[in-house]
């Protein structure tokens, strides 16, 4: 079937891209000034432990062997020990991954859906007050500097109004309470997630709205819309059933293209709200010279971006039969 071939081809591409990223990172690591051993091995370790780690990473071997060790360690999940946490890196990032995925995917799905919905309405009221307000609003929110918006959100909604917690993802007391059910815990996470989610949503929905709006305006000029009118369909059916599914396709493409941009924003949001995700871990580890943790976080983020690209591609193929068949 066409779809399987298409996904297979994309998977191969993704693998190649990732391999290149791995290799470039290795080369940069070797090119960077300073001693590679001191980057990978915590200077506070005992000489025995240090020797063990050096052996594991093959840091005493010639360059090519080091590269092979590096690949082997990557594919077997050996990223070394975090200087800061003193734990295996893989454990730390594995814990952080679900948190990032939760915030990242919810924000993208929410902003794309709302953007598509509002863009549809704006196009339908083209030139009217509704349209002008929405377009201007989208332009403004879309260009706000994200970390600043995050700070303002905290300042207004958490500090001044006290509606939401200032930082973090959970209330420790609730999670330690043995009586708290899953529902209470989920609500607690949602409560903490509101502000970061709102920040990411505000930044992202605008561009999807603008794309959907202009795409709708183009689609409404298509001949099959005229066919729909000639068939005596109601304007609502024409808009929702005939124009919108076609007009949403460019929005999906743009979601895919802006994934890299979204993950940048995700890392900034996580950092400001101290949301325990990989993006924040990357920022944190870089500022604390914790290279093993930084490297692993970066690679994991790269995988997340590449795989979400794949998901978007599959979604596109699902929405557009011209690719599926």
């Amino acid at each position: 079937m066409e779809l399987k071939r298409y996904i297979g081809r994309r998977l191969v591409q993704i693998f190649v891209i990732f391999f290149v990223i791995l290799t470039v990172l290795f080369l940069l690591f070797r090119l960077a000034p300073g001693d590679p051993v001191s980057r990978m091995v915590d200077p506070n370790l005992t000489p025995e432990d240090a020797a063990l780690l050096i052996k594991e990473f093959g840091l005493d071997q010639p360059l090519l062997m080091q590269y092979l060790y590096y690949l082997k360690n990557f594919f077997t999940g050996h990223f070394g020990f975090s200087f800061h946490y003193g734990q295996p890196v893989v454990q730390i990032i594995w814990n952080r991954l679900p948190n990032t995925i939760l915030l990242f995917t919810t924000s993208i799905i929410l902003s794309a859906l709302v953007g598509i919905f509002l863009g549809k309405i704006a196009s339908w009221h083209k030139g009217e007050k509704t349209d002008i307000c929405m377009t201007l609003g989208a332009l403004v929110t879309h260009t706000i500097f994200l970390p600043w918006l995050a700070l303002i959100m905290i300042w207004v909604f958490a500090y001044k109004l006290g509606w939401f917690p200032i930082t973090g993802m959970i209330t420790v007391e609730i999670w330690l309470d043995p009586q708290a059910g899953l529902w209470t815990k989920a609500l607690d996470v949602l409560y903490h997630m509101t502000l970061p989610l709102a920040t990411l949503f505000l930044i992202h929905f605008g561009s999807y709205l603008l794309i959907m709006r202009s795409s709708m305006l183009d689609t409404l000029k298509e001949d099959y819309i005229l066919t729909g009118r000639a068939k005596g369909l109601s304007e609502k059916v024409i808009r929702d059933h005939h124009a919108a599914p076609n007009a949403a396709l460019p929005v999906v493409t743009s979601v895919g293209l802006s994934l890299a941009f979204s993950i940048n924003g995700g890392a900034l949001t996580e950092t400001v709200f101290t949301w325990p995700g990989i993006g924040r871990e990357l920022v944190f580890s870089v500022s604390h010279n914790d290279y093993p943790l930084a490297q692993a976080s970066f690679l994991l983020i790269a995988i997340v971006v590449l795989l979400s690209n794949l998901v978007v591609d599959i979604l596109y193929a699902y929405l557009d039969p011209r690719i599926r068949y």
Partner: peptide
Amino acid sequence: WQEIAMIFQAAMNALNPV
């Protein structure tokens, strides 16, 4: 369509692709 229908030019993309 119930009383008056139209036959459009096929090259005109008169059928909805999705």
